[in-house]
Design a protein around this nucleic acid. Sequence first.
DNA 1: CGGGCTCTTGAGAGCTCTCAAAATCGGTGG
DNA 2: CCACCGATTTTGAGAGCTCTCAAGAGCCCG
Lengths: 215, 215
Amino acid sequence: MRAAARPRPDSPRPEPALRTIGTVHYFAPQQTIFAEGEPTAHVMLVLHGMVRSCNLFPDGRRHIGAFWGASDLFGLERHAVYLSSAEAVCETAVVLYPAPEGCCDMTLPNDGLPCQMLAALTRDLDHARGHARLLGRLRAIEKMAAFILECQPRAEPGAVIDLAMTRQDIGDYLGLTVETVSRCLARLKRDGLIDMRSSRRVDILDVAGQRRVSA
Amino acid sequence: MRAAARPRPDSPRPEPALRTIGTVHYFAPQQTIFAEGEPTAHVMLVLHGMVRSCNLFPDGRRHIGAFWGASDLFGLERHAVYLSSAEAVCETAVVLYPAPEGCCDMTLPNDGLPCQMLAALTRDLDHARGHARLLGRLRAIEKMAAFILECQPRAEPGAVIDLAMTRQDIGDYLGLTVETVSRCLARLKRDGLIDMRSSRRVDILDVAGQRRVSA
DNA sequence: CGGGCTCTTGAGAGCTCTCAAAATCGGTGG
DNA sequence: CCACCGATTTTGAGAGCTCTCAAGAGCCCG
């Protein structure tokens, strides 16, 4: 496993209302926050760092469904158990809230589901649909370009991305192997769309080109 | 385009409460119910037939995000416009309800979102996540087996599936080409997991084998 | 300086796609 | 009822993209 990353400076706080009832927990790189099949107990908010949502196949294949960063709410599974594991990608701080009444039980009336959680739910839905579209119909180089744009929503020439995840993580998110991820990044660099000062630091040079490539 | 399929016998009715405020609409095969980018106006329930949710790429590639069948609620986009098109796969009847207050506007308080719609939202989320996992990490033959199982949740030896969709639809849903879909079905048949009386009629012979193949 | 990861790069294999053509099916019109 | 027509499905052959396997380079840390 990868060595521990350096702790990061504090990120924006969650709104006071939630903050007062939650407890902050810290996780080391690769540490499991909750595991697939575990009973749902908490809803969580990322303070800083990064969390990956993943599933493991019996034969070792891994699928990463999403990366959650600062201010993302996650763990809102409306089932009795989590359907995916959540793991810290790097040094990560998370606020845990007890799961609200009726939030995880589909059989109860749910008129009281907090607005913020409903927003998280719909955001997750949009993301999952977009992810499926990417996985189903883009080729490797297009997936890679789309991933970079997803990492930096306000993409503009000169924008710099600090990747917290490994090539393996990226591959398991994009449905590719480590080698293909590496080759695609090399190609984007060769074509002048990005630059890489180090393997974890991506400079966006040509946003229009990225969008063109990402289909 | 494919010629019109025969109308099907009636399906189970939606619960009375919803039925009284909706209006029933009929759609011919391939007919568009709503298009990507159109303002959201209705939430819909399938009475009978089948609806596909899809996105078209500029270069002609198509992605199908889901198939909705009898008693499925759809069109609940929490945006001002639909993000995918909905099209009838075969002769289809749908009940249209006016979109409830606050249902499509993320900026309003949403404590009143009807329970049934919240259930549809979480069902869609689970489905989209599962779909992404399938698209990202399964090979063609595994996707095909998983699709067949998905078509027939109560799969058991002897179960018969009537496919309303074409090979092209299946391919665009599984991230495969028509030819690969056809070849995979042929292989499942050759291996004794399914039988096919006609191209649209699949008999499940070996459920355990299917599950094994679908990973 | 050495050990263990991660990342990159190369070569070849394999799976899926592309292109093409034949077979099948369903509907239409004679 | 049969022939025809278009669409769908199947099947084959070859190309191409991504994966697998392997080795080397880079980096961090002890």
